[in-house]
Design a binder for these strands. Sequence first.
DNA 1: ATAGGGTCTGTAGCAGCTACAGGGTCAAGA
DNA 2: TCTTGACCCTGTAGCTGCTACAGACCCTAT
Lengths: 142, 142
Amino acid sequence: MKIGQLSKATGTHIETIRYYERIGLMPPPARTPSGYRSYADPHRDRLRFIRHSRDLGFTIEEIRSLLDLSDHPDRDCSDADRIASLHLEQVEQKITQLENLREELSRIVGRCRGGMAGDCRVIEALADHSHCEHPHDGAVRL
Amino acid sequence: MKIGQLSKATGTHIETIRYYERIGLMPPPARTPSGYRSYADPHRDRLRFIRHSRDLGFTIEEIRSLLDLSDHPDRDCSDADRIASLHLEQVEQKITQLENLREELSRIVGRCRGGMAGDCRVIEALADHSHCEHPHDGAVRL
DNA sequence: ATAGGGTCTGTAGCAGCTACAGGGTCAAGA
DNA sequence: TCTTGACCCTGTAGCTGCTACAGACCCTAT
């Protein structure tokens, strides 16, 4: 399987596959005489594992640990569960943060009555934190 | 006001203030004879506007537009409301995505019965997307 | 004189890709 | 046989929004 086929089989950009190889997440595949990467089924499965984990929001480093466990079926697997639980907690935290954000934003949005910026309530609310209910500490990435 | 005082007054790292100046979000302030930045109250207000907007999750580019409106009180301000509504929508989308994630993750987590990685349900679930309910298309950043 | 704080510029790093530039390879059609 | 076009290669730079240096300067107190 050449890289383009692997790309299609897994829905992963070619550049991303090469990137995963560069950072050691994917093992370097065999090469054809002309230097093309040549993948087999285990590569594809590994890449699917990676993509699925990424889709679930795991970081590269978490995936590295998970793959390491997957590579050593004899090891104790409680680490895997620990990583996943921790991750779930983070997702829940993020949801809470975003729900707070949504509240503040919905208080701000829709208050513009189509006038001029000078007395726009939206601008005003952004300028003055004291309109807010919560301290919303720290920028929340979307 | 020197940069350190502005930093404390707004809870913004010094490097971040200089960064905002470099990207044109904060205007270059006056300088003391020895080259130190010297800020006045309008700078502090502007920085508070920026920080507050960042805390609400607006991107730098969105904030640029909002500041632009704030700088021109005579302009029509419906843009401000549009930016904020759009942003609210994105926050809501993100919440939905994360809630899906949470569901999938909570299905995966806790299935490890403390055995070996070889028959760990967590690893298994990551390897095989077909366990999942939803397609969870595309990686979701936390 | 010196020690400590603060400040300056400029550059590099983080995550996780994505997007080139500038070249080589390969199969099919004229 | 030649050429076209699709594919592949390496290497590097860019994205967002900061953060963290290095190496220098300034200012005040002792």
